[in-house]
Design a protein around this nucleic acid. Structure first.
Lengths: 231, 231
DNA sequence: TTGAAAGCGGTACCAC
DNA sequence: GTGGTACCGCTTTCAA
């Protein structure tokens, strides 16, 4: 159980002040015009004793945690799992740590999670919002916290979102089938009331209407086995 | 952008010291024999201004972060994704926050991740270790940090592990097929050199040997399409 | 070139 | 019953 070493320990050992050590360790040696020799000595010693800064203390002082809270519907879902994993890698490269949590698409759960993240002083938020989270997202923004929505968004409330082109995708897919000579084309979807689903439906409908074809939709949620068609 | 309120703000408003506020907010009012009325007043005010403790400051002072670092092979993998999600829920119920990271089953990556977690002062670790992480796991333990391995473990190094009964499972499955009259039973596996795979293989072999049946194994990694048998 | 010291927001010991 | 205050480890201003 090697004892934690702090910048004071190394300052004492080097006969300098903690400030000097802090400067050197943060690459501000040049800026603060600290002698090259001193800098070398400190760096060498820090490496020797395997100094690791206490991020907690740093965060308390700077007010930044380099932490991003990420809310998805379910981390175990392949779509969100992959998204989480990829974003995690990118974040880490940029020196950020992602905090994940699953909302179950439940706004109450999501609210609780946001509270946890706020308690942890997350610097920013990446959210795949469940329906009903409008207020909370707005509250975050009003408090000056960076928020980006993904996979879904709220119509009417101004946010930065990254979403697939659901409308265009459904439209193109439908057109493609039409070009291949198909006439009876159905859309299997979920009636979740979520905006991304609605966008797909609209894309499909628009393509069908342009060709004056009948609209056919399967509701995957009410017919899990996909046994019958509605409308 | 409502300003962050601290216990000092509350203390000033209530004309008491920050110490008193801290006691009340931490349920130590009775223990510290603080008057019921004062307690009520402070609680009410805290609620009114929606006070949220700064966990960073709390962590710095107490040395505990109520955070657990979790290393899996791949968060996007359904097995690990589900494990992550379930553990996350339990942890949160207990007031802990899980930090996830994917090792890609690469010890170098895992080491870097452990460094990040240590920097974040994680209170404990849950690890599905890649081969070659023995030293690092031992180092954690020597530093007095709680570690639990899951899904795999290292033979010979003493750790707390939670793993499936791979040997017993393979043995029972094989026996089951034998009881149903099958004689040529093959094991499709991966030659990963990982202990859990070896355990399964041993369970299968033992069951086959007890009946004097021929050992047949498919190596799923060298024959991804599972086209031919070896041995 | 370098260092003293004031915080960041809490906790908890000890005194009154 | 309540409060003063030192301290957790680090950053940063200001002075020397």
């Amino acid at each position: 159980m090697k004892k934690k070493i702090s910048i004071y320990d190394i300052a004492r050992e080097m006969n300098v002040s903690s400030a000097t050590v802090s400067y050197v360790l943060n690459g501000k040696a040049a800026e603060k015009r600290i002698s090259k020799t001193l800098e070398q000595r400190i760096m060498a010693y820090a490496r020797e004793v395997d100094y690791r800064p206490n991020m907690i203390a740093k965060s308390l002082r700077t007010g930044k945690t380099r932490t991003i809270g990420m809310l998805v519907e379910d981390v175990a879902d392949p779509f969100f799992g992959n998204a989480a994993r990829i974003m995690e890698g990118i974040a880490r490269q940029l020196g950020y740590q992602l905090l994940f949590a699953s909302t179950d698409n439940n706004p109450a759960v999501a609210r609780g999670l946001l509270d946890v993240f706020r308690g942890a002083q997350a610097d920013g938020y990446i959210i795949a919002p469940p329906p009903g989270l409008e207020q909370d997202v707005q509250a975050l923004q009003e408090d000056g916290l960076p928020v980006v929505l993904f996979d879904r968004y709220f119509v009417g409330i101004p946010t930065t979102n990254v979403v697939a082109d659901n409308f265009g995708g459904a439209y193109k897919a439908t057109r493609h089938l039409q070009h291949n000579g198909h006439r009876r084309i159905a859309l299997v979807t979920a009636e979740s009331g979520q905006v991304q689903m609605g966008d797909r439906l609209r894309g499909y409908i628009q393509a069908m209407e342009e060709e004056d074809l009948p609209i056919l939709t399967f509701n995957a949620s009410t017919f899990p086995g996909i046994k019958s068609a509605i409308s």
